[in-house]
């Protein structure tokens, strides 16, 4: 069981930030059970995620990392407590809007649409957000490819023709396409070679530090944890 006491935040818990104002994303005594009355996968968890920082969520298998990811990405709602985005309870918000506008999620298996091209995948998310863009979407999408270090000639390639690392970069570009405040990544470096891992991590750090986004990474990798600003460690349930 994980509880507050067991929750470790070794890299200088920013108490000052908490007091200064509402964090962008906050877990308020969150619990989650898959079945009503069933065992709690997440048990009374509280935590704050800040903008401008890269936070790694670590923990052994079964500690509830994926569940936590689904809670903060608005795919589901907690059975107890609240997930607050900018002080508003996610359970009361339109979570489709939340997913399409406020956050960008990079799934472990990327979850790109294989039939679409790189550009189409990115632009579909921009369309889905319903946001207005001051420049042509294609231009923004091509710039995002630059940002994730993917050559522009990939723009019209089908996803199926890309390698894992390339798909990962497209997934990141897609997550960033609608300019979200929070970027959530699930095992973003799982199957990548060390050089690519480093490159990807550099992109995340740049997002947090230069674009002032809240970056949350769910990972097993100690290197990622070490490179991130904050590590939120989940303990294995007994």
């Amino acid at each position: 069981m994980t509880d507050k006491k067991n929750t470790a935040a070794p890299a200088a818990q920013p108490a000052a930030a908490l007091e200064a104002g509402e964090p962008i994303l906050r877990l308020g005594d969150v619990s989650y059970a898959y079945k009503k009355g069933g065992p709690l996968v997440i048990d009374h968890l509280s935590y704050s995620f800040d903008t401008g920082r890269v936070t790694s969520i670590m923990g052994p298998s079964g500690a509830g990392k994926t569940t936590l990811l689904s809670l903060i990405s608005g795919l589901t709602v907690p059975t107890g407590g609240r997930v607050l985005f900018e002080g508003r309870d996610l359970a009361t918000l339109d979570r489709y809007d939340y997913r399409s506008r406020d956050i960008g999620v990079i799934f472990q298996s990327f979850n790109l649409l294989p039939g679409l091209t790189v550009l189409e995948n990115i632009m579909l998310t921009m369309d889905a957000s319903g946001k207005r863009f001051d420049r042509p979407k294609k231009e923004i999408a091509l710039e995002l490819l630059d940002q994730v270090h993917l050559p522009r000639h990939y723009a019209d390639e089908r996803i199926l023709h890309l390698s894992g690392g390339e798909q990962q970069r497209v997934a990141i570009a897609r997550a960033l396409s609608d300019d979200p405040k929070v970027v959530i990544a699930d095992e973003p470096t799982g199957n990548l070679d060390p050089a690519t891992q480093e490159d990807i991590m550099a992109i995340f750090l740049e997002l947090a530090h230069e674009q002032d986004k809240c970056v949350i990474i769910v990972t097993h990798s100690p290197q990622i944890a070490k490179a991130s600003d904050t590590v939120f460690e989940l303990k294995a349930r007994r």
């Binding site: 795919l75 489709y96 399409s100 979850n111 790109l112 649409l113 579909l124 998310t125 889905a128």
Partner: peptide
């Protein structure tokens, strides 16, 4: 799944 995950209603 992908469409709903990226927030398409």
């Amino acid at each position: 799944g992908v469409l709903t995950a990226i927030g398409v209603k």
